[in-house]
């Protein structure tokens, strides 16, 4: 089996990735790798380029931005060499993504059940009824009560935390191997943030997911990730196991971020 061959090699290798928007180099020569089932935090301030890295991994950089160099090897294949049609079969099926704002990331005119089921129909070729049943099952997996009934509801009928649960159910719909979570808790209330983090941990184990967690919050990195990549102005300033980076930060930028966090925590 392919899985056995790849067991010991990293699931994702990103090499010298650069993304350019007109006049701005948003991401410059970023390299990192991710083992199967591992959790990597990508930390940095807003505008540091961390979300751009996430979109680049999905090849969803909107023009006029574009990926100018590098390679993204996922499951042994360079995603940058895939055609648009081949990439469509990777997105959602093998690599999924959840976004910062669950209020705007769900389509207001379709039921949540439909928004989960459509991906299942397309990627797994299931019929309407079977795909709907799969959608309900995913909603149950993210602990939405009365999932069967709630699947018929529209996004505006859910609270913020519930919508993020729906987004997670949608991301898990086709059993992907890698989940990219782009600031998934930033738009939520503090108490809800914790619930979502716990839910992500739970589904990571249940679905055997590798996770890339993008955040500006070192507290979340500490709670959730094994390794961390610190990004500033589109470049990697520091990388390593979270415990090591937090206790002995090597770069001045990381120290500055950590100091800021400590001051906030003290107050």
């Amino acid at each position: 089996m392919l899985d056995n061959n790849l067991k010991n090699s990293p699931q994702l290798i990103v090499g010298n990735l650069s993304v350019v928007y007109p006049g701005v180099k948003a991401v410059a020569n970023v390299s990192f790798s991710l083992a199967k089932g591992a959790t990597l935090g990508i930390a940095g301030e807003s505008g540091s380029g961390k979300s751009t890295i996430a979109l680049a991994l999905m090849k969803l950089i909107a023009p006029p931005g574009r990926i100018t160099s590098g390679e993204i090897i996922f499951d042994g294949k360079n995603l940058l060499k895939l055609s648009d049609a081949e990439m469509v079969r990777v997105r959602g099926a093998k690599i999924s993504m959840i976004f910062q704002d669950p209020f705007t990331s769900l389509n207001p005119v379709f039921t949540v059940g439909e928004q989960i089921a459509e991906a299942v129909r397309l990627h797994q070729g299931l019929g309407r009824a079977a795909a709907w049943a799969a959608a309900v099952k995913r909603l149950e997996a993210v602990h939405i009560k009365e999932a069967e009934r709630r699947a018929h509801d529209y996004p505006h009928q859910f609270s913020g935390g519930m919508r993020q649960r729906v987004m997670i159910a949608m991301a898990l719909a086709c059993r992907p191997q890698l989940l990219i979570a782009d600031e998934p808790t930033t738009a939520l209330d503090t108490t809800i943030q914790l619930e979502i983090i716990q839910l992500l941990k739970e589904v990571q184990a249940e679905f055997n997911l590798s996770v890339i967690f993008i955040t500006h919050n070192f507290g979340i990195v500490k709670a959730f990730c094994r390794d961390v990549l610190v990004i500033n102005k589109g470049s990697v300033v520091e990388t390593g196991p979270v415990a090591a980076v937090l206790s002995r930060p090597q770069s001045s930028y990381t120290r500055k971020l950590l100091d800021a966090l400590r001051i906030i925590n003290r107050e």
């Binding site: 969803l60 997105r91 099926a93 769900l106 389509n107 397309l122 949608m170 991301a171």
Partner: peptide, 10 residues
């Protein structure tokens, strides 16, 4: 939600 729709492979 358009970006999200693309992200799920539609």
């Amino acid at each position: 939600f358009i970006r999200a729709a693309r992200a799920k492979g539609l």
